[in-house]
Amino acid sequence: MIEDKVAPPPRRGRPRDPERLRRIMEAARSHFDAQGFERASVDAIATEAGVSKMTIYSHFASKEGLFEAVIRDRTDRVMGGLAGVEALDPEQPGKALLAIGAQFLTLAREEDALGQFRSLYGAAATQHEACLAFYRQGADRLISDLAAYLRRADAQGALHIRHPRQAADLFLSMFLGDGHIRGLLMLDMPDTRENKALLKEAVRMFMAAYAKAP
C-alpha cells in the first residue's frame, strides 16, 4: 500500500513511551510473521497496537525501519550470548562455538524466521529495502559478531585464522543445510538428537581447521 511506503518526518515532543513502543513491536511482529513484509499494513499494525499511524512513524522512519527493528529484536532475544560476544572466553573457542552454534541453530529453526525467509525470497525483486534490512540485522550482524570473537581467539593464540569474517561465515553456514531447507519447504524438521549431532560435528570440523597447532 502506498501509504505504508511514505513516512512523514519524525516529530519532536514528549519522550517515547516504553509501553506504547512494546505494543507497536508486538503488533508489527504479529503482522509481519502472519502476512510477510509486502502484505503487512502499517494501518493494521497501528490499529492493533492502539496508536495512530503517525505515532508509529514518530518511532520508525518507514515501514522498512519498523521491519528492521522487529528483525533486530528477534535476533537480540534468541542470540543474546552472541550479541554479547565480548563476554565469550577467547581462550576456549570450542566451548564458545558450541554455545554460539546452539543459539544460531535455534534462530535458524524458528518458524517466524523461516517464514520471513520464505516471504522475502518471493518478494526480493520488488522489496530491496526490506531484504537489505533482513540481511543487515540477521546474517551480516551475526557474521560480524562471530568474526569479532574469532579475531580475539586468534590474538590469544587459541585459533589461527587469517580471514575471520570468512571463517565466521563458514561456521554459521554449516547450520543452513538440509534441516534449514526442510524448514523452508515446511517439511519434517530434524529432531533434537539430529541437531545436537550437527552442532558437535560443526564445532569439531571448525576446530580441526582452525585450532592452533600444539
Rank of each mutant, 00 (worst) to 15 (best):
R109A: 08
L198I: 06
A46S: 14
Y149S: 00
E201P: 02
E201G: 02
N195R: 09
S62C: 10
A61D: 14
A102D: 07
E129M: 04
L172D: 08
L176P: 06
A7G: 15
D76E: 12
V78M: 01
C131T: 02
C131Y: 01
D178I: 08
G94Y: 03
A7R: 13
M79T: 00
F104R: 00
H31A: 14
P93M: 08
P18V: 06
L66R: 02
E91S: 13
L105F: 00
S119T: 09
K95T: 08
R152N: 03
L142F: 03
A102E: 13
D191T: 06
D112E: 11
D76F: 05
P9G: 13
A69Y: 01
P15A: 12
R20S: 08
G177Q: 13
A69R: 02
A49G: 07
T192Q: 12
D188L: 07
L176A: 10
P190G: 09
R182M: 02
R193H: 14
A125D: 05
S144C: 01
E91A: 12
G122S: 05
T75L: 13
K5A: 10
E194N: 06
L66Y: 09
H31I: 11
L146Y: 07
D4A: 10
K95C: 07
H59R: 10
Q103E: 13
I181C: 04
A83M: 10
V85A: 08
M186S: 10
G101I: 01
G94H: 04
K95D: 07
D112V: 04
H128K: 09
L107E: 05
I24H: 08
R162S: 14
R152S: 03
L21W: 12
T47F: 15
R204Y: 03
